[in-house]
């Protein structure tokens, strides 16, 4: 019996999933990436192993993904986050045809086939527009907890429009609204709408199809989820594990690798020195 790990080192948080042979999730961890990405990956793996009650030495294969994937010293393979999010979304919702991954610094729309393979994708990693970092800054400016942001935005009765796409310029608009004594929930609703507009535009570029799955850290924001559903006029798949989708996909692909290597007769060792 062996286990694999999927390690997703994002710009905001590092996610690790330990998976058993039957694609069962045994343990997960999430922690802030910080400045030292390699340390974050090591710590994430240790944490997830503890949760899974799995000995390090029994991790037969490690697939790393995310923007810090090359910083994962103990990886066996690195896979782009696009491939991993597609597989992860498919793992969570097998009917997924479109994946929208909204992370701290990057947003991606991915069109996937029935097996969760990437058909087409578009991403924005050049600027903070529509990404989680923008929400973080707005939360700070309005002195609201990031976790409450979405819920609060849904209480709005009179949304205040945000016309700038740029996160920095939008922030000034937010501050202007504050100085005009607009309600926090109304400003937040406008902010969420502006992000949803960007996401919907990205999604259209890859071809909007029936089942949309939201992944990445911003999927935890209920305001984004509800407004996106209203914008797309359809239900959107969201799981509480949505932020783990990249790591889940990496783990699934690690298992596939293992199977392939096994079929080719490659001898697999349980690695030493990691106990």
């Amino acid at each position: 019996m062996y286990h694999v790990a999927g390690v997703d080192v994002g710009s905001g948080t590092t996610k690790v999933v330990i998976m058993g042979e039957g694609r069962r999730v045994l343990g997960v961890s999430e922690l802030r990436s910080g400045a030292d990405l390699e340390a974050a990956a090591v710590e994430g793996l240790e944490k997830a192993c503890r949760v899974a009650r799995v000995d390090h030495a029994r991790i037969a294969y490690v697939a790393a993904t995310g923007y810090g994937r090359y910083q994962v010293g103990f990886r066996d393979v690195q896979i782009t986050e696009i491939t991993c999010h597609a597989r992860g979304a498919h793992y969570l919702f097998p009917g997924t045809r479109c994946v929208l991954d909204v992370g701290a610094q990057c947003t991606r729309a991915i069109n996937v086939d029935f097996h969760g393979r990437v058909r087409k994708f578009r991403s924005n990693d050049k600027c903070a527009a529509g990404a989680g970092r923008f929400l973080e800054r707005v939360a700070k400016a309005l002195e609201v907890d990031l976790e409450q942001l979405g819920e609060l935005s849904l209480r709005s009765k009179e949304p205040q429009p945000i016309s700038s796409v740029c996160a920095v310029l939008a922030e000034s608009e937010v501050i202007n609204h504050v100085s005009q004594e607009r309600k926090t929930e109304d400003i937040l609703n406008g902010v969420h709408r502006s992000i949803v507009d960007r996401l919907a535009a990205l999604l259209r570029q890859v071809g909007l199809e029936s089942e949309v799955t939201l992944t990445g850290g911003v999927a935890r924001n209920i305001g984004i989820v509800r407004l996106l559903e209203a914008r797309l006029e359809r239900q959107v798949n969201v799981s509480s594990d949505a932020p783990l989708a990249g790591a889940l996909g990496a783990a699934v692909l690690a298992l596939e690798r293992m199977r392939k290597l096994g079929a080719e007769g490659t001898h697999l060792y349980v690695r030493e020195g990691q106990a």
């Binding site: 400045a35 610094q105 600027c127 903070a128 970092r133 923008f134 996160a167």
Partner: peptide, 15 residues
Amino acid sequence: VCTVFVESEIVSHLA
């Protein structure tokens, strides 16, 4: 290019 990202880039250069 993004102002938001440049802030983090500067912080990491300082570090």
